[in-house]
Write a protein that binds this DNA or RNA. Sequence first.
DNA 1: GATGAGCGT
Length: 412
Amino acid sequence: MAQIQVQHQGHVSGPSGVAAAAGAGGANQFVTTSLYVGDLDFEVTDSQLYDLFNNVGQVVSVRVCRDLSTRRSLGYGYVNYSNPQDAARAMELLNFTPLNGKTIRVMYSHRDPSIRRSGSANIFIKNLDKAIDNKALHDTFSSFGNILSCKIATDPSGQSKGYGFVQFDNEESAQNAIDKLNGMLINDKQVYVGQFLRKQERDSALNKTTFNNVYVKNLSESTTEEDLTKIFGEYGPITSAAVMRDGDGKSKCFGFVNFENADDAANAVEALNGKKNDDKELYVGKALKKSERELELKSRFEQTAKEAVDKFQGLNLYVKNLDDSIDDDKLKELFSEFGTIVSCKVMRDPSGISRGSGFVAFSTSEEASRALGEMNGKMVVSKPLYVALAQRKEERRAKLQVSYNIGKNLLV
DNA sequence: GATGAGCGT
């Protein structure tokens, strides 16, 4: 059992679970009597659920949810009580009870997924001792308010991964828990407690981090360090300004300006990015570290490569079984009667010998498909041509893999 | 070091 030794002052109690879950007007009376039971072992049955939950109150109905066709358990179910008091008591007493050796999680049933998805009032905890389980986590955080859901991340064997999540029913409780528990010791480990952020949100939060160094490009060749200092100095004190130059001292038309204060750097970017300087539109932004810049270049390169392939989709023909005497020009000649040829290439090995295949791209997909229809199987010099729409590399690899697997299955 | 998945008759 985990030993919690958190010392936080000012015990904060949230609204009672029942009242909070019921909502003010009790518009949905079932909210308070219907429980969701998750993390069920797949062998758990309706009657097991009934037996367990009927111990603590009068159960009206239970159900383990199952896949319609396979009848396999989906690992969650519902328990409905006749009154809210019993439901609340069941939550209190049965949450994190083991059933078939697996700890169940009990929550009020929220059929509307919007709260779950919103991620509001949701906090993330890391550097947790591996001995801390769902229940210990719940006990630690329940003093800050009403918990909707609470879970330690585990590996497939059930071992804690040392981090977890607690979602409260209101932001104030979540903020309070963060304020009081972040950096505290639990089982002698200093935990981090913060707002839960999705990966995307985390990345953009990271990108917003402050910076002092500003990158500027699209300078005119005559722009000097002094000019930069004058232009950027409007926004605050500058510690350095540099125009990058080649070996002959000729400007590479980009440079860096370092500000004393990050706020000034941000203001300069805001004000100067896109502004005209000597008839050229400046790009002004946060200066990236080398690794960051390489990452960005790489992803941009991959993006344009993909776009280039997409652009040819339906326009590019793959041709094989070409006679060795066919070169780029002859290939173009063969296909030119069907339309405008944008590009045309016979593939060759490093020594220049034709591989007997090539690509012909047309300006419209109509031209390409007509050429395909007319030229596929046509005798050229000594052999019948094979013509098909060119496939993307990954696409072709995937298909080859499939046919290889089918072939393998046939052999077995 | 780490930032989720789950809601029926």
